[in-house]
Simulated assay, not measured.
Amino acid sequence: MKVFAIMLSLAAAPVAAADVIHFTTEDYPPYNFRVGSEIRGAGYDQVLLMMKDINHPYSIEMMPWARAIALAESEPMHCVFTTAHIPERDTRFKWVEPVAVGRNFMVSHKNSGIKVADIEEAKRHIVGTQRNDYTQTLLENEGFPKIDLATDLKLTLKKLESKRIDLMPISEQHYIELLEKGIDLEAQFVFSEQKFAIACNVNFPADLLARMQGALDKLIADGTQAEIFETYDLRYSSFGQVAAKP
């Protein structure tokens, strides 16, 4: 397999023009994350290549998720990634997709003794998630009575480990990554399935959106997106188990 590498210098597009596209993102591996002063990830790399293809000025900034998505919703030239395209968000943004497709598991700490098979059983427990994350919307729509909100995913995970909460929804890929790091988690059931995308402001220029979608379509068609997924070891698991590396 060809080794896929992207240098940070690819992101050094001019940003002085009035029509600059402002991308916001969060620390959410493996889609976007920091390594030292650099941002990397399966979503981030696709954005870099798309913008290189359309040759349009842009910037990318990592920040807390609540601020990142709020800017995309309120500012005309802003887009946010990697964003779950759920029904509640459909008309609030314009979409470039799919950057990825994923599942969320409802997980517990491995030694908690908790066993739940579905959403109704999970409602008896305290469930934590990140404030303004799409999983908050999913939990609220399902009528979970005890939702604990934290400023970021890492804090929610700490609460789970310290048994301040009982359960939390987490992406399949992040679940696999945490298991491989030795974090004691146990998947209880598949909580949701969703498409991940770039979400742009509803007033974002239609011509630019079409060019970005065209660039993403090319990444998918020529196998580059799949190669990026390989780079970040994105793979599906048998439910509750880590998938074998190819």
Rank of each mutant, 00 (worst) to 15 (best):
R235M: 11
L48C: 12
R103P: 02
W65D: 05
L160W: 04
I198R: 09
D152I: 07
V127W: 03
V101D: 02
L138M: 14
R131A: 12
F4M: 12
R92F: 07
R67V: 04
S108H: 08
D148T: 00
S171P: 08
M106G: 12
L157D: 07
L178T: 02
A11L: 13
I176N: 09
P64V: 05
V35E: 03
H22W: 06
D233P: 06
L8S: 14
L48K: 14
R89C: 11
F23N: 03
A100P: 05
E97Y: 14
D148E: 01
K94A: 06
K181C: 00
F144K: 02
V20W: 00
I21V: 09
S171A: 11
L48S: 10
E142Q: 07
S108L: 04
G102H: 07
L178E: 01
Y31A: 14
E75L: 12
I198M: 07
A11D: 08
E172N: 02
K245S: 06
K123N: 01
F196D: 15
L219P: 06
Y31G: 13
Q46C: 13
V47G: 06
L216T: 03
K245R: 11
S238H: 10
A11T: 11
S192R: 13
A122D: 00
E38M: 01
I170A: 05
H22V: 01
T137H: 15
G182P: 05
M7C: 08
M1I: 14
F144Y: 01
Y175Q: 03
